[in-house]
């Protein structure tokens, strides 16, 4: 049976477009909120993980790079990385970082803290990114964009590293959005006898 290629099989292009746009103008980083909101809308409203299954640009990119381009070493992930403690622990950590971005943006909006025109990779390495920001907009809007872009870039690096070492979509095992939406779906799930 030949599987027909559909439009969503090309959503991996969105990952490349997103990070490219962030190089030009950091305000495009706000588009990353789509990857936060859409999975939740589908999970809460539809009780499914359709975003992970079809529309996740990162999942598609990992498939293209890992399976089609053959870049994955396809090793088995360690058991602890597949365990619930790590999955839920990483989810809590990830969302703590997300709420920290909102908090810092609020500090900037309040005038307590100045705008930091840098992208922070892996929560430690600060990369100067001032060329992608031109003044004239509210500093907190730019601060949130820098923060969100940092979070998206960091998680992309971790996802690609996991793809290279383990199986192509290893990131999906501990993806915070995937863990959260599965938890929501599990809470909604009513088993049916088939």
């Amino acid at each position: 049976m030949n599987k027909q290629r559909r439009w969503y099989h090309y959503l991996w292009l969105w990952s490349i477009i997103y990070f490219s746009l962030g190089l030009v103008n950091i305000l495009f980083a706000w588009l990353g909120l789509i990857s936060f909101c859409l999975p939740l809308i589908l999970a809460i409203g539809g009780g499914n993980k359709l975003f992970c299954n079809r529309y996740c640009d990162r999942g598609q990119l990992l498939r293209v790079m890992g399976s089609q381009a053959g870049l994955s070493m396809r090793r088995e992930m360690p058991e602890w990385m597949k365990g619930r403690a790590f999955r839920y622990g990483f989810m809590v950590f990830f969302f703590a970082m997300f709420f920290n971005i909102i908090y810092v943006s609020w500090l900037v909006a309040s005038g307590i803290q100045g705008l930091n025109e840098a992208v922070t990779v892996l929560w430690s390495l600060q990369l100067p990114w001032s060329w992608s920001y031109s003044s004239g907009i509210e500093p907190w809007v730019a601060q949130f964009a820098f923060g969100l872009y940092s979070l998206m870039l960091t998680s992309e690096i971790i996802a690609i590293a996991a793809m290279l070492i383990y199986k192509p979509r290893s990131w999906c095992v501990f993806c915070p959005m995937g863990t959260l939406t599965q938890t929501i779906c599990r809470a909604r799930y009513v088993p049916t006898i088939k």
Binding site: C172, V173, C185
Partner: peptide, 14 residues
Amino acid sequence: CVACGSCADICPMG
């Protein structure tokens, strides 16, 4: 299972 859908994506038989 984490319901990522990679199995459904790769399955030649759907």
